[in-house]
């Protein structure tokens, strides 16, 4: 009986009504976390003794980069679930989360570049992390392009699921190869990973903003999934009732 929730996930109707009441609280809590974390990081956290105030970019750069990766893992897992169990919700989830992942990767890239200008002296550096986020961004764009290229929904579902799974298998290889390539090409430049240990005043706001980002994005994903469910299930009577009751 423990697996009942898992099987219920296959039902768009069940998911729609379960998730409906979650969207606004998630978005609300998320924005509170975001505002608190970012204001704390911008105004109250102490400046870094090496980088000064530029280091404050970390409070958006790190959450965005983390989300860009987490979204891809979720995408790959959903693709796997779809290929194995043909679960109806999986492609809906993939469709909802892919653009969000792409935006997160873009934010990580842009803030990384802006951060790079005062610290490294250039906008772009072929740093292992920036490069692997760039690859991630391209993977997202490929998935979005593939998804919108098909007229047939079933085929779009299958095709994107295949790419997501292949991407999930390849992502560690890509990451490893880029890190390895980077160490080969350039010596120890300043690396974001080798920061001196942060003090609590610095990482607490980071933690808050990371949690805020995650909650906010979870709310957005659920919201997008709801639109997608309504669109895909428009022939069923419960969708008709839901739409007509709500009014314009």
């Amino acid at each position: 009986m423990r697996w009942v929730w898992f099987h219920k996930l296959g039902s768009p109707k069940w998911f729609f009504f379960q998730s409906k009441s979650w969207v606004l609280p998630l978005l609300g809590l998320g924005s509170i976390g975001l505002i608190v974390g970012l204001v704390w990081g911008l105004a109250f956290a102490p400046a870094d003794y090496q980088q000064g105030d530029t280091f404050r970019i970390i409070y958006i750069h790190v959450p965005a980069a983390m989300l860009a990766q987490s979204c891809y893992f979720a995408l790959g897992a959903a693709g796997f679930v779809y290929l194995v169990w043909q679960m109806k919700m999986a492609p809906i989830f993939i469709k909802a989360i892919a653009p969000i992942g792409a935006v997160m990767a873009l934010i990580a890239l842009v803030t990384g570049a802006i951060w790079g200008k005062p610290t490294w002296g250039t906008w772009w550096i072929w740093d292992a992390r920036l490069t692997s986020v760039l690859v991630l961004f391209f993977l997202y764009m490929g998935i979005i392009a593939l998804q919108s290229a098909f007229d047939d929904v079933m085929l779009a579902n299958k095709a994107t699921a295949v790419v997501c799974v292949v991407g999930l298998i390849n992502l560690p290889i890509i990451k490893y190869s880029v890190v390895w390539w980077n160490t080969l090409h350039q010596g120890a430049t300043f690396s974001l990973a080798e920061k001196p240990a942060m003090s609590a005043e610095m990482w607490l706001p980071l933690l808050v903003s990371v949690v805020g980002f995650y909650l906010f994005i979870a709310g957005l994903v659920l919201w997008r999934m709801q639109s997608e469910i309504l669109q895909r299930e428009h022939r069923s009577s419960w969708v008709k009732k839901e739409v007509m009751d709500r009014g314009l």
Binding site: V135, F138, L139, M141, G142, I143, A145, L146, A149, F150, D152, L155, A159, V162, V163, V166, G167, N170, I173, I174, Y176, S177, V178, W180, W181, L184
Partner: peptide, 29 residues
């Protein structure tokens, strides 16, 4: 994946090229 699309070749390259990064990296190194 893209065989049923009429304009699939560009999309196929966009999809596949990122996966070639590691191969190129290790081969050239």
């Amino acid at each position: 994946l893209t065989v049923s699309l009429r304009q699939g070749s560009m999309l196929m390259m966009l999809l596949i090229l990122p996966f070639y990064f590691p191969v190129i990296i290790f081969a050239t190194s």
